[in-house]
Simulated scan of single mutants.
Amino acid sequence: MHINNRLYDQVKEQVDSMRCRLVKTVEWKIDKASMLRPCFPPGEALCSTDFGAAGIEGLHLLFYPCGYTGYCSLFVSAPAGAMMKCVLYAGKERRDANHTFERPGAFGRTNFCQFETCVEDDSILIRLDITEAHQDVVAKVASAPPKPGELRTLSQLEAVAKGENGGGGRFQGK
């Protein structure tokens, strides 16, 4: 009996990709909410683990218990080329968020809500409901440094990143 481990990895990758497309709601429960404000002063965030939803990989939720102005803040972080129409929740508080990420970054609300209004039973339930999403894959070679053994020069890499010599381009993704 022969086992092709490479085939297993390829099938697993495809199944994971299909699962990612089907996920439209992500929940993140933060326990011991009473300890958050002393541990995360203004400007410091709790960051969720990396997840995929609605066909977009590499998403994160960022929750700032002390926010920037006394309110807690909530953001969704996405890779370049992602477009999302979604609703962010912290407890019972809800805010719409619609954004196209031309560069990797985060979008949400600095003044999401007062901390006390999103705490229930010493925990906070953060939720992301995605109503519409897609991702354009943009080739950005210049953002990655040349790898050891790279045969092209830095000027050649920059030319490819700018779209010269037929190297750049825009592709429709997931």
Rank of each mutant, 00 (worst) to 15 (best):
S34R: 15
M35G: 13
L36S: 00
L36R: 00
R37D: 09
R37C: 07
P38H: 12
P38M: 13
C39L: 14
C39F: 09
P42K: 04
P42M: 04
G43R: 06
E44M: 12
E44D: 08
E44R: 11
A45L: 06
A45H: 07
S48F: 06
T49S: 14
T49K: 14
T49N: 15
D50E: 13
D50K: 09
D50S: 09
F51V: 01
G52T: 08
A53V: 04
A54C: 14
A54W: 12
A54S: 15
A54D: 10
G55I: 06
G55P: 03
I56R: 10
I56W: 07
E57D: 11
E57W: 08
L59T: 00
L62K: 06
L62R: 01
C66G: 08
C66T: 03
C66E: 07
Y68I: 02
Y68V: 06
G70M: 04
C72L: 13
C72S: 12
S73D: 05
L74I: 06
F75M: 02
F75N: 04
F75T: 00
F75Y: 14
F75P: 00
V76K: 00
S77G: 03
S77T: 03
A78R: 00
A78W: 02
A78M: 00
A80C: 07
A80M: 07
G81H: 09
G81T: 10
G81A: 11
A82S: 10
M83Q: 13
M84C: 03
M84W: 05
M84L: 14
M84P: 00
K85R: 15
C86S: 14
C86K: 05
V87T: 13
V87H: 04
V87E: 09
V87I: 15
Y89S: 13
A90P: 03
A90G: 11
G91E: 05
K92D: 15
K92P: 14
R94D: 09
D96N: 12
D96L: 08
A97W: 08
N98L: 09
N98G: 09
T100H: 15
T100A: 15
F101D: 06
F101M: 09
E102Q: 10
E102H: 12
E102Y: 12
E102L: 11
R103Q: 08
R103C: 02
